[in-house]
Design a protein around this nucleic acid. Sequence first.
DNA 1: CTGAAAGCGCTTACAG
DNA 2: CTGAAAGCGCTTACAG
Lengths: 340, 340
Amino acid sequence: MKKSTATLKQIAANLQLSVSTISRALNNNANISEVTRNKVKKEATRLNYIPCSMAKSFRNRRTNIVGVIVPSITHSFTGIILKGILLETDRIGYKTIICETNDNPEKEKELLNQMLEFGVDGILISLSKFTTDLSPLLKVLEKKPIILFDKVSDKIPCTQIVTNEVAAAFSAVEHLISIGKKRIAIVKEKQGSFNSEKRFVGYLKALDQYRYPLDETLIFDVLNMSIDEGELLTEYIFGLKEKPDAIFCVTDCLAIGVIKTLNKYNVKIPDEIAVVGFSNSNYSTVIKPNLTTIKQPGQQIGKLAVKQLMEELGNDNDFFSSKSIEVNTKLIVRESTFVL
Amino acid sequence: MKKSTATLKQIAANLQLSVSTISRALNNNANISEVTRNKVKKEATRLNYIPCSMAKSFRNRRTNIVGVIVPSITHSFTGIILKGILLETDRIGYKTIICETNDNPEKEKELLNQMLEFGVDGILISLSKFTTDLSPLLKVLEKKPIILFDKVSDKIPCTQIVTNEVAAAFSAVEHLISIGKKRIAIVKEKQGSFNSEKRFVGYLKALDQYRYPLDETLIFDVLNMSIDEGELLTEYIFGLKEKPDAIFCVTDCLAIGVIKTLNKYNVKIPDEIAVVGFSNSNYSTVIKPNLTTIKQPGQQIGKLAVKQLMEELGNDNDFFSSKSIEVNTKLIVRESTFVL
DNA sequence: CTGAAAGCGCTTACAG
DNA sequence: CTGAAAGCGCTTACAG
């Protein structure tokens, strides 16, 4: 048989005390005598009392749950951020409801509404790639705090945890320049996600600062950031007369695809073509040659997002904000741009 | 200002109707006239009414939330299973609270209790590596259904979603035998997790069936299933006089570490030493040579776990069960055991 | 130090 | 077809 759970009422009845007293004793309220408190706690243990969070949440208008919305949970960098979120929420006694949009803005809107229904205390979200209508987010912001992370947009008036994409990309390209590369290509996303665009800006900035001419034929667009797309693109590049001597990929996956195909054609990396990725995924030290890439502190991003959310929950004012919290990235030089 | 949300009471007041009627109209109860229903719905929309799931859950003793407990969310196979869980729960209108144990049994016990407090309808759990005390699970089973997946244990009387570990390992070793390997080593976990042990059984079974002598010196234990451990072990193996000519690793990560080190010493794979992994992670086609491995249907496992949970929630009887649902695996042959 | 009472937002058996 | 009332388990202002 499924056992049912004891309630305050039952404890009260057993002990000939009022429900209020039981509640206070269990919550260590100062006004309860030591004796009563102990008696109550003992009986609670004896009955295997399990407090009903649901009733508490309902009563207190606070669930201690944060809603987390991401495009896809299997994306490896997302996983690392989620780990940061879980570690931090666990530390402070919160639970997380995690949902996926699979990059579908309609689903995103639906989830946002469901989060409101479920009464989460606040929301952490990494935007879907195709989100253009910001009104669902704005509507939620009228009631609950939202923190954006990873896939952000500066068009939304709420706190964002970001990496300095421009500076990171700049340092990647600068590195390629420093090892003497002349024809530096970039592989970015055609759809132009926020991150891809920022990294492109960093690319342009580096070229500009080092007085490299901007060569449109070195700018390559792909449909998505997969290994496959990286491979396809490289096949294409391989057919060109004028090839690049370095390729900056806006994600590690693209870079892995690029390297796989360069290896297939026995191109010498980095001598003939150097490759840089972005995000220091686990792939970077599995591929040969090991990938030079940008390290982003994923766990820290997750933890910061939770901390920031808690801060805003403590505020009395509304949740609109334009705060942007930046975490530092680091260029990690490996074999794909450097030979010992 | 933070906007507050309309309630049934407010709609009722505005419309001069009773709260009961509003509730029924919004829930499409048959006993409400078309006219009233429409009037109510219109007013609800006008007021931007958001139903309060918390109050509903509290009232109905049902949260439509499933609790999910895993050792680590960043483990890639876990991520794939979680995706299956999320897709299925989303499809049927459930939400998931996801927590990590980081392989700490104490944390696992704590989370189990918290799940009870939060009032989840049921629990999906992949056991921590060091769980030995099963009583916390048994206690939860008295109240809520639990489905075990991936890291399971046949000592717990509840439904389990498993892959046929023994058969899968058998087929891997059989494959190594079929390509003519004589000294087939296994790399397994010293702590002896359920999965590692089952795979070891499959290894023994294959050797036995093909009348291969059991050579204790070909059985290697590692502390954990990381790439690093695979590398360390291979360094050790490399120092041995008598080397294996094939290595069956109970996880892909171990296999990746093994291959990296074999490559470092220019060992010819598979001619000198063949390598097989387990789980068909994304690494398998990034490493050179591409890894022969066992494909496990992760998403299917996740979906099945949810479906099974829902079935048990529908049951009137208790949640103790010894049902074990098996999903099929498949050996994927790649370069690490096969040359074109 | 303890208790009686109200109420969080909702659903549902009962009555008409 | 609609309403009044009870109650899910808890907390807290008020009273003593």
